[in-house]
Write a protein that binds this DNA or RNA. Structure first.
Length: 428
RNA sequence: GGAGAGGUGGCCGAGCGGUCGAAGGCAGCCGCCUGCUAAGCGGUUGUGGGGGUAAUACUCCACCCAGGGUUCGAAUCCCUGCCUCUCCGCCA
């Protein structure tokens, strides 16, 4: 959420930013609504002041001079007077409430303003490659897709998963399941070693949490919802973990806060029919280890770089070639001001695929979730900046390991760093 | 699931219809005092929004879990929801 005062004072900048993000919300209209709201608020404050004063007088009279007929008469007059004030207050308050709701319905679906360093562009073709690590391996045979290899090794079963759940689900079996678990542990250990505190959060969250991080109200069709009682399945650990500090005023010296969390993630994938229908790339349920930071505003862009580097290091440890893309204005997520996608090389598809997304949300989520901090002796509070990055998406990592480390005989070499977790060096 | 109790400031804890943003204590901060420390004395300390100012000062509104209601007036009364605790039942 953007600050309505910021929108008012920088409306041409905001307008331009929204245009670059392909968002067609009318800012001037919103500002007018806000002016109207403010007028109502001021009128209400005045009436309340009047009411408070008179009510206080009534209280005085009652208490001090109950016996005098004169003061009883006066109190009656006052009561009649203040009743009128109260009545007009009531109707104004109703107007204010609907004005506030109308404003919220707009501000809640306005995306974040992209950072100045974000390239302007319509879609993903304008994303910019920042760096590349590792050389895609040269095969002396035709590399296969991970689902074909997994099937012949009997470590992933998509057909039976479809039977028990439906499309876009997978059963991990034997060393496939073991690889999934090994990656979870490896990633959590890796991140823990880099200063991130391990969190295991709830996976069902309430509407407020989903609103705090920006999934609601705009992206309800992407979420799995439980109707009664109302809960949402998290699409990413970012939601419960960022909301850990919702509504809090942190002490300056508590910052920065680094968390890492494993959760399963649930996504409807509405509108992606026909995309990645085979394999582990796009599932309704997948595992992910997430990185979350709460930082002071002046550090958030440095923190984005180190966050991205932390996620990259996992791929380096695993020996998986990747590249880092800076997303353009048209491709960046709703809540983000700047995002780097890390894409891993998949020999079966002969292309790079997203395996991590690292974003600085600045104060966008903090304002929604009311995550603030108090700076030393300064009065007042400021919103923290929040960042998250995948470190990493586990299903896609499994796919990358299978495809990158496949052997001609159909076996898979386990990366060094995972061997202690796996207990073997080769899946065959 | 059944029966009770409760949610007040950084913390503990009073208040149960009017002068309560809220006693008292603790903690914190600023003075004073004091060989040092401890104790003592005085003052001070929440959040958001509006007006005002060069900035302060000053001032108004709101906030005692959340949302409604009663009332001239609600932390206090009523309703709903959420959460916590105790007992019984059930259960991984």
């Amino acid at each position: 959420m953007l600050d309505i005062r910021f929108i008012r004072e920088n409306h041409s900048l905001v307008k331009e930013a929204l245009r670059s993000r392909n968002c067609a919300i009318d800012i001037l209209d919103l500002i007018q609504m806000e002016d109207n709201r403010k007028e109502l608020q001021q009128a209400i404050d005045e009436l309340r002041n009047k009411r408070n004063i008179i009510s206080e007088e009534i209280g005085m009279m009652r208490k001090l001079q109950l016996k005098s007929d004169h003061s009883i008469e006066m109190a009656k007059d006052k009561t009649a007077e203040v009743k009128e004030v109260s009545d007009s207050l009531k109707s104004l308050e109703e107007k204010l409430k609907s004005a506030e709701e109308a404003i919220a319905s707009v501000t809640m679906i306005i995306p974040n303003i992209p950072h100045a360093t974000v390239p302007v562009g319509k879609d993903e073709t304008s994303n910019v490659e920042i760096r590349k690590w590792g050389e895609p391996r040269q095969f002396d045979f035709q590399p296969l897709n991970h689902w074909d290899i997994a099937k012949s090794l009997d470590i992933i079963d998509f057909d039976r998963a479809a039977k028990i759940s439906g499309a876009r689900f997978a059963i991990m079996k034997g060393y496939g399941a073991r690889l999934e678990r090994a990656l979870m542990n490896f990633m959590l250990d890796h991140n823990g070693g880099r200063g991130y505190k391990e969190i295991f959060p709830p996976i069902l969250v309430n509407r407020q949490s989903m609103t705090g991080t920006g999934q609601l109200p705009k992206f309800a069709e992407e979420l799995f919802r439980i109707a009664d009682p109302e809960f949402y399945l998290v699409p990413t650990a970012e939601v419960p973990v960022t909301n850990i500090h919702a509504g809090e005023i942190l002490k300056e010296e508590e910052l920065p806060i680094y968390y890492t969390a494993y959760t399963p993630c649930f996504r409807r994938e509405a509108g992606s029919y026909g995309k990645d229908t085979r394999g582990l790339i796009r599932q309704h349920q997948f595992n992910k280890v997430e990185l979350v930071k709460f930082v002071k505003p002046e550090h958030s862009y440095d923190e984005l770089e180190t966050l991205t580097a932390d996620a990259e290091d996992i791929l380096r440890q695993l020996g998986l070639p990747y590249r880092v893309m800076l997303l353009c204005t048209g491709d960046i997520g709703f809540s983000a001001a700047k995002t780097y996608d890390i894409e891993v090389w998949l020999p079966g598809q002969t292309r790079y695929r997203e395996i991590s997304s690292c974003s600085n949300f600045e104060d966008f989520q903090a304002r929604r979730a009311k995550i603030r901090f108090k700076r030393g002796d300064k009065k007042g509070t400021e919103f923290v900046h929040t960042l998250t990055g995948s470190g990493l998406a586990i299903g896609r990592t499994v796919a990358a390991i299978i495809e990158n480390f496949q052997q001609k005989d159909g076996s898979i070499v386990i990366p060094e760093v995972l061997r202690a977790y796996m207990g073997i060096e080769l899946i065959k």
